[in-house]
Amino acid sequence: MGLALTLIAQRISLGILMLFAVSALIFVGTQILPGDVAESILGQSATPENLANLRKELGLNEPALTRYFNWLGGIMVGDLGTALTSGASISEAITSRLGNTLFLAAVAAMISVPIAILLGLFAVRYKDRWPDKLISASTLASISLPEFFIGYLLILVFGVKLGWFPTVATVYDGMSFGDRLNAVMLPALTLTLVVLAHMMRMTRAAILNVMQSAYIETAELKGLSSFKIIWKHALPNAISPVINVVMLNMAYLIVGVVVVEVIFVYPGMGQYLVDHVSKRDVPVVQACGLIFAAIYIGLNLVADIISVLSNPRLRHPK
């Protein structure tokens, strides 16, 4: 257990270091972009006079390094600051946006992970026969289509033609859980179709890998049914790569869904981030970037820990 604990402590401290590096990178990135927040806010209606007034008010006349360290100081005490564009508190806005993003990701994961693993098991059971080929072909087809296209297809079929689900997935405070679930159905299905193939293929490959082992042959000779062999003997030993790919896709569901958010008008983090990038609103971009990086690093950490715990050799070192 000691080895595992050291490993975890190591990973966490590396993760925190990584976050600092990420925040510096994001800051540099936003400085390289052409134009500043004052120009972006006023757009075509900018005059030298109102530009100067706005710059002064937003504190843009201070050097970039000073602004970066001011911000970093705030983060250390848990203050994300206020958005330059709207003057609204960033932590307040992010709390509700992040909640929405996590809700959508959770619904999508709840649908996609069990389906992906079950399909993977099926594909192994009927390896090289028609169910395997059908599963592979259809999931690969759905991953090959761009997200927006899948989104539009689902809108057309389930929203416009059949009228089962709303095409606009706007969620807001005071909505009941059922309404919320109904509202996010189409975006969640879109995301499911996008991530299904990756997880399914990985499950299939990982299990097929251990299916060559001697103990599987033993199990077969014992006369166990092929599903029982796959479920009881192969899957537990193939869990580590499966968990890894599941975590990778979870991270994607949280940080990479801006296109789906735009199509379904879902008020999540992605749209919030993109809006502020285009306005050069550095504090918000920093905060979102940091949260995304933390989620990404955190999920990878979880994957590592589960791999360690599922591996008896790491769990009980000599």
Binding site: I155, G159, P166, T167, V168, V265
Partner: peptide, 19 residues
Amino acid sequence: VTVINDDTARVAALQSGQV
């Protein structure tokens, strides 16, 4: 008032009777 910036989604919302 719902903000729908995607052209296709905006028209679909009207077509499906949501707006």
